[in-house]
Amino acid sequence: MQQKIDPIVRKETAYIAVWTLIFSRIMQAVFLIIDRWDYTVLLGNLLGGIATIINFFLLGITVQRAVLKEEKEAKQAMKISNTLRTFLLFIIALIGVLLPCFNTWTTLIPLFFSRFAVMLRPLWEKRRDATEKGEA
């Protein structure tokens, strides 16, 4: 039976997608400033950014399903998911490195954008809490 996507997974994926977009813009700007920008930078960024968002979404789906299982089964499901997602990222990175139409660095760097977004999360929440307190 097909399960509906949890609203939390959707919300967090949207959060990661927004930050990926912001970081991508910053990276494009940096490449423009150092005069290294060409279409390969843009294509590489698109490939890496989309891979990051898909990876996070798949992680969310796996977590959503795993928390409903027994402990042992959940552990196993996460391990299998991790292996498959790492393989997916390997393929994406391989495409980015081997095909000349993608810039190697702009394909690889966006894979870490989700971590940067998570690192910024406490700042984001602090600001939101401060705003809510101000309104109250």
Binding site: D6, I8, V9, E12, F56, L59, G60, V63, Q64, V67, M78, N82, R85, T86, L89, F90, A93, L94, V97, L98, T104, L108, L111, F112, S114, R115, V118, R121
Partner: peptide, 29 residues
């Protein structure tokens, strides 16, 4: 719990990603 764990998993996964990127660079670049 799901929300916090999702972000925890992302942090944990990046370690593997560092390794993957280094391995790819070592093999192909």
């Amino acid at each position: 719990v799901t929300s916090t764990m999702l972000f925890g998993c992302v942090i944990a996964e990046t370690t593997g990603l560092y390794a993957l990127v280094i391995a790819i660079l070592l093999i192909f670049v």
